[in-house]
């Protein structure tokens, strides 16, 4: 395996469960026990109603392409051009991702196209959630 040279996240006590999920091949989100709001990124309370009664669950991993850019200047660990996308998750929140397993061109993309999560192993402790066109 080639060395992973992209920026690595450093989990905190509040986000560790999310990153543990990614390592286990699951995209984990949180839902409020009081108002049912589903949110991202992780925190031990609900940003919609301030309740601390929140619960983790495993998301479907399905979403759609909300917006994107194609970066033509590659930082360390990336090869230009590469897509940086914002994914609209089926459960409501949005998250940043790259789009993998597809040409890194505008022609290969359509806003609102269906996507699914996949996980890229970065280190022994960290896997990064990534998205690809559904069925790619």
């Amino acid at each position: 395996m080639t060395e992973y040279t992209r920026p690595l996240p450093q989990p905190t006590p509040e986000t560790q469960h999310y990153w543990d999920g990614a390592k286990a091949g699951e995209l984990r989100l949180q839902r409020c026990g009081d108002c049912s709001h589903v949110y991202f990124p992780a925190r031990p309370f609900c940003p919609a109603c301030s309740s601390r009664d929140v619960n983790w669950f495993t998301a479907s991993g399905k979403g759609t392409l909300f917006s994107y850019v194609i970066n033509h200047r590659a930082p360390k660990g990336f090869e230009a051009p590469y897509i940086i996308a914002v994914v609209q998750l089926e459960e409501g929140p949005r998250m940043m991702s790259n789009l993998v397993d597809c040409p890194q061109t505008p022609e290969a993309l359509e806003i609102d196209m269906p996507l699914e999560v996949t996980f890229v192993t970065a280190t022994d402790d960290i896997a990064i959630p990534q998205f690809r066109p559904m069925g790619a």
């Binding site: 992209r6 920026p7 450093q10 990153w19 990124p41 917006s67 850019v69 970066n71 806003i111």
Partner: peptide, 22 residues
């Protein structure tokens, strides 16, 4: 650092235009 930098956004020229296609 956890939820955007791993995807390689390189400063404002990459991040700021993110809403434009939408």
């Amino acid at each position: 650092g956890q939820f955007e930098f791993p995807y390689g956004p390189m400063g404002p020229p990459t991040m700021f235009p993110m809403p434009v296609m939408r």
